[in-house]
Simulated scan of single mutants.
Amino acid sequence: MRVKRLLQNPLVKFVILSYVIFLVFFTAIGIGMLVGAPESITTILQILSAWSSTFAFVILFPKIYPGRKLKDFIKELFAQKLKLSVFFCVVFVQLMIIVGTIILLTNTTDTQVTASFTGFGLLFLAFIDNLVRGPLGEELGWRGYALNELQKRYSPLKAALLVGVLWGFWHTPLWFASGYTGVELIKYIALFMIGIVSFSIFVTLFYNLNKNLVIPIVSHQIFNFSLVVMKGELLDILEYVMLFYFLVAFIVIVINPKKILYQ
């Protein structure tokens, strides 16, 4: 009976459906690559897979919020005036993480970190591609819905941890498509989960300081794009980026501006 009640929970349904839709698209991508489907087809499938949490939320929306309109719900997520102090603080902290990563990698490893894109045009296209493949497709479901719902029952810190873990494991199929095996795969997964849970804490704090979904979208974009633009040994880059986010998460938990994380 407990399991049945749990499965009737709208938030649980959202998580399960997000996982299922992502897995379906991921499987379709794999099949497409095996049969030699055009690259344009696999690219579209990759983009759609990133929107699986949005698709899940849209499908379940009438049952989650009966009588409400989806467009009104989305408008509310962007209704609060954007606080430039919060926005620039988020950008500054994440840019410092990138700078710190480049400095430490250059001085402590054999990895030479360079830009993946040399032309502004390519960099801009990569920026838009990254935005569509990640933040725009994921934040409505994971932050706009799941985080806000969990915060109705739990403290922001606990909600952030729960979303971080659930959102992290949603990426599971990507781990096994990374090309890593053995110890390297374990290291990759560990760094990924440390980073994504830490990022979830970081973004929850700043999102709660300014309840506008632009904050998590921008934060997520910088988080992802930093890994795209830095060219080098991925595991070395991940080691520093993710541990920096862990350090930042620890600091914001300790400092906890305006007691946001424990309200």
Rank of each mutant, 00 (worst) to 15 (best):
I59C: 04
V203C: 12
L23K: 01
I102F: 13
G67F: 00
Y207S: 11
A190I: 14
N256G: 03
I217D: 12
F26H: 09
L11C: 03
V197C: 10
I47Y: 12
A160V: 02
N148T: 05
L131W: 12
L162W: 13
G121A: 13
K211L: 15
I217T: 13
T54F: 13
I194K: 04
V229S: 05
I74H: 07
V165R: 11
Y262W: 08
Y145V: 01
Q112T: 13
I74E: 05
M230G: 05
V90Y: 01
G67K: 01
I102N: 08
K69S: 04
K75F: 09
M33K: 08
I41Y: 03
F120I: 02
R2T: 11
V113P: 07
L140H: 04
K152R: 11
V214P: 00
A126C: 02
G179Q: 03
G119F: 09
V218D: 07
I98E: 06
L122K: 04
V218P: 01
A249C: 04
L191I: 05
A37W: 06
V15R: 15
K83T: 08
I255S: 10
F124A: 11
L123V: 07
F22Y: 11
P173T: 04
K81T: 14
V86P: 08
V93M: 10
Y262K: 13
F26I: 06
L70Y: 01
M230P: 06
Q80K: 15
R68E: 10
T43F: 09
Q151P: 04
L166N: 10
I128V: 08
K71Y: 13
I64M: 14
V86W: 10
L123N: 03
I47N: 02
L60P: 00
G168P: 03
V132C: 10
N130Q: 10
W142N: 14
F61C: 00
L136F: 13
V3P: 08
M242K: 00
N210H: 09
E76L: 01
T181D: 12
F88G: 04
F244W: 07
V229H: 05
Y245V: 01
L191F: 09
V183R: 08
Y154H: 09
A159H: 03
S198L: 10
F206M: 07
F250P: 00
L48V: 14
N148V: 06
A146S: 15
W167C: 15
L174V: 15
F61A: 00
L125A: 11
G182R: 04
W51H: 00
G179M: 06
I64A: 08
W175L: 05
W175T: 00
V248T: 04
E149T: 07
G137M: 07
G179E: 07
W170G: 12
F225D: 00
F88T: 03
Y65S: 01
L261V: 07
L60N: 05
K83C: 09
I194E: 11
M33L: 13
A190C: 12
I97W: 02
V163S: 14
L122G: 11
T43D: 06
F117T: 12
P257D: 06
P62W: 00
M242Y: 03
T106P: 09
